[in-house]
Computed example of a mutant assay.
Amino acid sequence: MNTLYFDHCASAPLHRQVAETVYEVMKLHYANAAALHRAGKEALKLVDRARLGLAAGLGVKPGEIVLTSGGTESNNLALKGIWGRRGRPAKHLITTTVEHASVYRCAKQLEGTGVDVTWLQVDEFGRVRIEDVVAAIRPDTVLVSVMHVNNETGTVQPIREIGAALARFPHVRFHVDGVQAIGKVPVCLREWGIDMYSGSAHKFQGPKGAGFLFVREGLQLEPLLAGGSQEEGVRGGTHNVPGIVGMAQAFRLSTESAEERRNRMFALRRRLLAIAADIPELVLNGYGAAEEERTAPHVVNLSYPGMRPEVLVHMLEEHGVLVSTQSACSSKSLQPSRVLRAMGLGDDRATGSIRISFGDEHTEQDIDALGERLRLTVRKLKPLERSRA
């Protein structure tokens, strides 16, 4: 029995071409990109070329790309960095109750230091209301941080509309966690009024340990760590040259045929939703096939109400299917999903949920095989459900 990997939201498989590139760079360009000798300058050229490619793909200037170690660092730099540069007492942050842990916990830390945080509620699909964002803005609001694609449900937030609304408040900066969005949904940083945007390479088939933060020109951030002068002094530390080069290549590969890939993944998602609808024990969390403009194409979140998530995950693994509960960063807690609870779902659904996320390697046959193994898993767990009743 072949193993089916359906956990792309946690980490996507490294693209074959990217793996070859990373290996070649590791083998040939091992010098420190900050070194003054020729080998160092050659490594720096690779970094600069990668930055140029990322900027071109995002429609921004190369100097607006800060290279980081991944999404968590990018999100922390955006939220914490903006407060350190203000030169006056911390004031007001607006975010949502369904953010990834790297934003949610960062905001909690800032709250503990005196930052006033407004936690916006979401609807039953996990979507924030634009009017709630606008209503929360105060004269002392510094930052609004709203994720682009939810990492558990795939819900797409109305980023374009929020950016347009915030244009009326020039004192407010707009940060977007785009980690689950790149290569999956459209993004227009300039047109949508986004000031900072986070990305992570291993979510779009690049290497782990590489990420970026778009920082609009003129916006200055305080470094998280004291160190060298890399990244214009915003992010010190030796450049991960192979990771950065691999990230730029993976970004290009994931975005150059984005619409075709998106349509293909939506077709797979519709197929999976039809299968899940025929398994009465399973309940969909998030948007169905009729609202595809409000959801990402690669994520399906299902609940088996009353069943422990680790039981579902391990039973599926026994049948050759790898999925997640919640986000990978929170899955070991085995607590009800904070995101699903924020959507107003009961603890039964928030606890017994699994996240299925797929990518380019999957076919209709893979979805059908997943469906059969889901049915088999539910049949085997049904007696356990009755014994718990």
Rank of each mutant, 00 (worst) to 15 (best):
Y5L: 10
F6R: 15
F6M: 13
D7E: 15
C9K: 03
P13Q: 09
R16G: 08
E20V: 08
E20W: 07
Y23W: 03
K27F: 03
K27A: 13
A33M: 06
R38W: 01
E42Y: 01
L46Y: 00
L52Y: 00
L52H: 01
L52R: 02
A55K: 00
L58T: 02
V66N: 01
V66W: 00
S74F: 00
N76R: 15
A78Q: 04
K80T: 02
I82N: 08
R85M: 12
R88T: 12
V98A: 10
E99K: 02
H100V: 14
A101L: 10
A107I: 11
K108N: 04
Q109R: 10
L110M: 15
E111Q: 14
E124Q: 11
G126K: 05
G126Y: 06
E131W: 00
V133N: 11
V134H: 03
V134T: 07
A136M: 13
R138Q: 15
R138H: 09
L143W: 01
V144A: 08
V144K: 11
S145N: 13
M147W: 07
H148P: 00
V149D: 10
E161V: 04
A164S: 09
F169H: 14
R173C: 02
R173W: 06
F174A: 09
H175A: 14
H175S: 09
V176L: 08
V176E: 03
V176H: 06
D177N: 05
V185K: 00
C188N: 14
I194M: 05
M196E: 06
S198Q: 03
A210Q: 02
F212P: 02
F212Q: 08
F214W: 11
R216T: 08
E222T: 11
L225Y: 07
A226G: 07
S229G: 13
E231D: 15
E231M: 04
I244Q: 05
Q249N: 05
F251G: 10
L253H: 05
A258N: 01
E259N: 01
R264A: 14
R269T: 03
R269K: 12
L273D: 07
D278R: 13
L282Y: 03
L282F: 05
L282E: 04
L284T: 12
Y287T: 09
Y287H: 14
Y287S: 14
A289W: 01
E291P: 01
T295E: 05
A296Q: 11
H298L: 02
V300W: 08
Y304N: 05
G306M: 14
P309V: 12
E310P: 02
L316C: 13
H319S: 12
Q326E: 12
A328I: 09
P336A: 11
V339L: 11
M343R: 11
G344V: 10
G344K: 06
L345K: 10
A350H: 11
G352I: 10
G352S: 11
S353H: 13
G359F: 03
G359T: 02
I367M: 15
D368V: 14
L376Y: 02
L376Q: 10
K380A: 15
P383C: 11
R386S: 08
R388K: 11
A389L: 13
